[in-house]
Design a protein around this nucleic acid. Structure first.
Lengths: 211, 211
DNA sequence: ACCTGAACACCGTTCAAGT
DNA sequence: ACCTGAACACCGTTCAAGT
């Protein structure tokens, strides 16, 4: 009833094609004319169904956020459960790098975190945090997770960071710590780094006395 | 000798005007034709001096990174000194929000952290961390700081996060913690949040035994 | 209600031509 | 060596017109 089998153009069909284009070739590849060509219609039909490019991107972003779905914590201690939520969100975001970039560019980065927020509040309560302290905990984890994914995505996209860390840490810069120079000279294991950082943050915030 | 007083177009003059445009009206406002108009020359002159738009952006990004300058730690304990470095970098990045966005979009996010990296290594050593553990510490702080600034900048740019946290936490969603609902319903104090998060991460990583 | 082509005002870039 | 205008191939968007 909604998406006919052959050619009846619909709002959903337009959004599907647009999402496919972005997912495959990035947001830059989403042009009204290219999209129309992909759909086999005139450019102006898109305007009738979803409006201009801004409206199209808004709808795409809305869709992406909705598609993230629920996140169920796993593990026995609050710390483990929070880390599992963080890992789950990270995986979801990494699955749609281009769409996440779109959401970010359009200023809705925070909304990507909403599905995880309720779960996090529960864990904060389970760990004994309440009120403003619990809110601060949730926010800190939120910024940490989303921020990490943004930085991570960025590194993977940039093949050569010209005078990057690689040649900066050419073994003699580090004074007397060759192991450190070696570690900083090659790209980080971002998953391991994510685990370490989130774990450290959560451990610290769940155990600290009132600030 | 470099930038003549009146009209001699030079590479630096072009970059200056471009940086000004981006700083005032964002990267979207940087068009070759608009820039030429601002400079009072033909569009094609820009091509002769700095090349196409990509080359122009590359040069701008290079400039931004170079302008970040050195960061001197202050404070007595390693933890305080690391936090001071993080605060310093955050301030520098927040001073040039549009240019930072440019650097990020062009995949050079990490290079923005290089000026702080050496300082951080010193503090890691001072705190007794060495080798791979010290490198992991530096990386964790780096991702935390840059990521936080990216998320922060994003929130400030988005005026209305439609069904955002505000109405999600309408006091009854939070079970029995009205103070938490109230806290999550209004925008966070990002500076305070930054301090708390970085402090917690650093404390945890500087004190933990070998993983 | 749905779809169309023509037209407008913008882009970045190239190139042959000037001095 | 430096600067120019004309031209090309793209954009997003509007609008009057079709069915």
């Amino acid at each position: 009833m909604t998406t006919g089998a052959k050619s009846a153009l619909s709002r959903d069909a337009v959004l599907d094609a647009a999402a496919g284009l972005v997912k495959r070739h990035g947001p830059g590849a989403l042009t009204m004319r290219g999209l129309a060509a992909e759909l086999g219609t005139a450019v102006t039909s898109i305007y009738w169904h979803v409006g201009g490019r801004e409206a199209l991107l808004d709808a795409l972003v809305e869709r992406t956020v909705a598609d993230l779905g629920e996140i169920r914590p796993s593990g026995r201690t609050p710390e483990r459960r929070v880390v599992s939520v963080a890992l789950g969100l990270r995986r979801r975001l990494r699955d749609r790098p281009h769409l996440v970039a779109l959401v970010h560019e359009r200023g809705l980065t925070e909304r990507m975190f909403l599905p995880a927020q309720r779960a996090l509040v529960r864990e904060a309560h389970a760990a004994g945090l309440r009120g403003a302290r619990a809110a601060e905990f949730v926010r800190a984890v939120q910024f940490q997770v989303v921020g990490h994914v943004l930085v991570e995505r960025n590194r993977e996209r940039a093949p050569a960071q010209h005078p990057g860390e690689e040649e900066l840490w050419g073994a003699e810069t580090a004074g007397d710590d060759p192991a450190l120079a070696r570690a900083l000279a090659c790209p980080p294991d971002t998953e391991q780094l994510f685990l370490t950082a989130v774990g450290a943050l959560v451990r610290s915030l769940l155990s600290a006395p009132g600030a």
